[in-house]
Design a protein around this nucleic acid. Structure first.
Length: 741
DNA sequence: TTCCGGAGCGTTTTT
DNA sequence: CGCTCCGGAA
């Protein structure tokens, strides 16, 4: 017991041992927030404030949820089974399975991941004969999810124009289609749960009485609906009130673009009159210079709850700054530096190369590859998103739920079995006439097209029967074999890796089955084959798998700054610190976009434990054209005393109205003088007081941002990216551009 | 059904 | 520049 609280600093201790009450913990980067969260749970239980059943802890990623469970079981020998620990979506899934009847869902409902959802929307537009040029599926998906995440059903959308009215109709049709097919998309998991809790008083009271302590990780990332769900579950005074313990960092909120609402932090304080706000500001990760840089940077943001990191580890090394001529010079410098660090004994996996956008990884990869440095890029396709895996899952989905038209269309002719577009069209027409799912429509078809379709239905029926008594992994194996998938990929030239992935799927099923068998699952679920299969399919949708596999390999880590959140490395290289790239040009016109970019930069800087490199280039190849960017304003926001320039410091600060000419002789510089000649000078260009990154307004095109410039004097032209009309090249002598912002 | 070429586009991403 | 997607031809 006393062990539990050992080595906590005073603030951590205060947070962990707060009496049962609402609390907001502002946990800075590297301040031990997961430790506080898990220790709090242990402390509550050990001191009898609450039983395991009374705990609900919610996270954003499966990784975080797993981490919490692991740490908890290491902390004290309690059965974590009674607790509800998981992601928002995972917990809602569990809730809806338990109350599927009240939620208006069949027990074996399927979960659509984003890709499935998009396919479902495309199919809807097709059956309704809607022009997908006018209503781009992606845009519609975004619209629908946006409404759902704001808790708004079609009937409640305020539509003022025809376009929106039509989109609302499509939203309604989409809902009907999902209901018909017994499928639920990600935001629907949350909205259904929320609505069920709201309208069903017995269920609401049951859970409000059960959960005495609700703990939320990464609270700054919650969206509107998630916060409302938490409020409902916590209850208010009359219905018995759970304690909300929210941990978050407003300075690390970088997901507004996908609905995260920082305002939730302030709202929480206000709505619950939170008596305890505790700041965890002692950082155990980085050296002083790095933290000072991060603090200085983030102090330029105005909308903050306020917090300042400190460490007792000493100042450490200065932050290294490098100016390159081109992106490939920058990459060359980084890779040479990496090699020398590796020679000094630093492990490659302790080195991270971070960038703002994925496109930047290419040059780095190229350089790493030709220098023979092992590297690993994060991001890209994940296991359960691979086409062969999705195909196999589609067969399984049809076995579990024949009404799933998305799964049906996916594999009805894969591997090809002579069911072409016309037979499918005939089937879809018939399905509309009979108002039945595709699968059920097949028997209604007469004539030739019916035969091959009937054979397909026969195949699925046979698979269902043959696998009914099999353990999950044998079922998966059997389905892969009998569907013809295995043969198909065997015959495909590049099919070897796909076959391996299918084997991996069988392994995943075996592991899943083992966990189910050992009782690591909620008690409120059945154990028959159908249920186990449904659970496995839900698992596949909710947890698309790590794209962080073989993390153990000794390789340099490449990823976007977003992907790096929550991670830490001894050495961090942050490249591409240029206006337009970081901060990204698209963010400049968004309200508060710049502050979000700055938070992103703050996240990047605080990833480094010992050494941080910041680099930028004079020119960069982007979208097939060379761009000359100014160095990032964020670089200027880091005090010079904390930095050490590896190239001759360039006194020109960005955003001076009159860019001064700059002289630089590469021959005289040490240590790693870039070998490329400097690009055409843009330094002496007179942009009439304008600069790249500047937001401007044009009488006809509206508001935009300058993204590139060329020529000088009366020839000077700038490229402006307009919010409405896209990118345009404009002659400065002709176009009248007014600086704004 | 498959393959090729042209057009279009090009932040960040979990569930 | 390099990728994805779509449509047309073999």
């Amino acid at each position: 017991m006393s062990q539990l609280l050992d080595n906590l600093n005073p603030e951590q201790l205060a947070a962990v041992t707060l009496p049962p009450q609402h609390a907001l913990i502002l946990a800075g980067a590297g301040s031990g927030k997961t430790r506080v969260l898990t220790t709090r749970i242990a402390w509550l239980i050990q001191n009898g404030f609450c039983s395991a059943q009374g705990i609900l802890a919610v996270t954003f990623t499966n990784k975080a949820a797993k981490e919490m469970l692991t740490r908890l079981s290491a902390m004290f020998p309690i059965n974590t089974r009674g607790m509800w620990i998981g992601t928002f979506h995972g917990l809602c899934n569990r809730f809806l399975r338990a109350h599927h009847r009240e939620a208006g869902l069949p027990q074996l409902f399927q979960i659509l991941d984003s890709g499935d959802q998009l396919a479902s929307i495309k199919r809807l537009l097709k059956t309704l004969n809607v022009d997908d040029e006018k209503f781009p599926p992606r845009e519609l998906q975004h619209f629908i999810n946006g409404q759902k995440e704001a808790g708004i059903r079609p009937a409640a959308v305020e539509a003022w124009d025809d376009y929106t009215r039509r989109r609302v109709e499509l939203y309604m049709e989409y809902e009907a289609q999902c209901q018909r097919e017994a499928v639920v998309d990600f935001p629907e998991l949350l909205l259904r749960s929320y609505e069920l809790l709201e309208r069903n008083e017995p269920i609401r009271r049951h859970y409000q009485a059960r959960f005495r302590h609700i703990l939320v990780d990464e609270f700054q990332d919650t969206n509107v609906l998630q916060y409302r769900w938490l409020k409902l579950l916590a209850g208010n005074g009359d219905e018995g009130c759970a304690c909300l313990f929210c941990v978050g960092d407003d300075d690390q909120s970088i997901y507004r673009f996908r609905g995260a609402e920082i305002g939730n932090m302030r709202d929480f304080e206000r709505d619950f009159k939170v008596p305890a706000v505790i700041r965890l500001e002692q950082n155990y990760r980085s050296h002083g210079n790095i933290l000072d840089a991060a603090n200085a940077l983030i102090s330029n943001n105005s909308k903050r709850l306020g917090k300042s990191l400190w460490t007792d580890r000493g100042a450490g090394e200065p932050i290294r700054v490098y100016e390159a001529f081109t992106d490939s010079d920058e990459a060359r410098f980084i890779v040479e530096e990496v090699q020398s660090l590796v020679r000094e004994g630093i492990s490659r996996s302790d080195i991270a190369l971070l960038y703002r956008s994925n496109a930047q990884s290419r040059v780095l990869e190229h350089q790493l590859f030709s220098s023979g440095v092992a590297y690993r890029v994060y991001g890209g396709l994940r296991f359960f998103e691979r086409q062969e895996v999705k195909h196999a899952l589609a067969y399984l989905r049809l076995i579990a739920n024949p009404d799933d038209d998305t799964a049906f269309t996916r594999v009805v002719n894969f591997p090809t079995r002579g069911i072409g577009a016309r037979s499918l069209e005939a089937l879809q027409d018939a399905a509309r006439t009979w108002n039945t799912p595709l699968y059920q429509t097949v028997p209604h078809l007469s004539g030739k097209p019916g035969t091959s379709l009937a054979q397909f239905v026969g195949l699925i029926e046979r698979l269902r029967q043959e696998t009914a008594a099999l353990p999950l992994h044998e079922m998966v194996d059997h389905v892969i074999e009998m569907s013809g998938l295995r043969t198909h990929y065997k015959n495909e030239k590049e099919g070897q890796e796909r076959l391996e992935n299918l084997d991996e799927l069988i392994n995943a099923a075996a592991n899943f089955n083992a966990e189910v068998g050992s009782g690591e699952r909620p008690a409120d679920m059945g154990t028959d084959t159908g249920t186990v299969l449904a659970e496995f399919l839900a698992h596949a949708s909710l947890e698309a798998g790590d794209h962080q596999a073989d993390a153990g390999t000794e390789a340099v880590q490449l990823m976007t700054v977003h992907a790096a959140k929550g991670l830490e490395f001894d050495v961090v290289f942050l490249s591409g610190l240029e206006e337009g790239l970081f901060p990204h040009e698209n963010s400049i016109l968004e309200s508060d976009g710049l502050e979000e970019e700055r938070r992103l930069m703050y996240v990047a800087v605080t990833r480094a434990r010992q050494r941080l490199y910041l680099s930028f280039t004079q020119s960069r190849m982007l979208h097939g054209q060379v761009r000359y960017n100014l160095r990032s304003r964020f670089l200027e926001e880091i005090p010079e005393a904390l930095t050490k320039w590896l190239t001759p410091p360039n006194p020109r600060r960005s955003f001076v109205s009159e860019p001064s000419p700059r002289y630089y002789n590469p021959g005289s510089s040490k240590p790693a003088a870039p070998s490329m000649p400097p690009p055409p000078p843009q330094k002496s260009r007179d942009l009439g007081g304008l600069s790249i990154g500047q937001a401007v307004s044009h009488i006809r095109f509206g508001e935009g941002v300058i993204v590139a410039a060329e020529g000088s004097g009366s020839d000077a032209r700038v490229q402006v990216k307009f919010a409405e009309s896209g990118a345009k090249w404009l002659m400065l002598a002709v176009a009248k551009l007014t600086p704004i912002g």
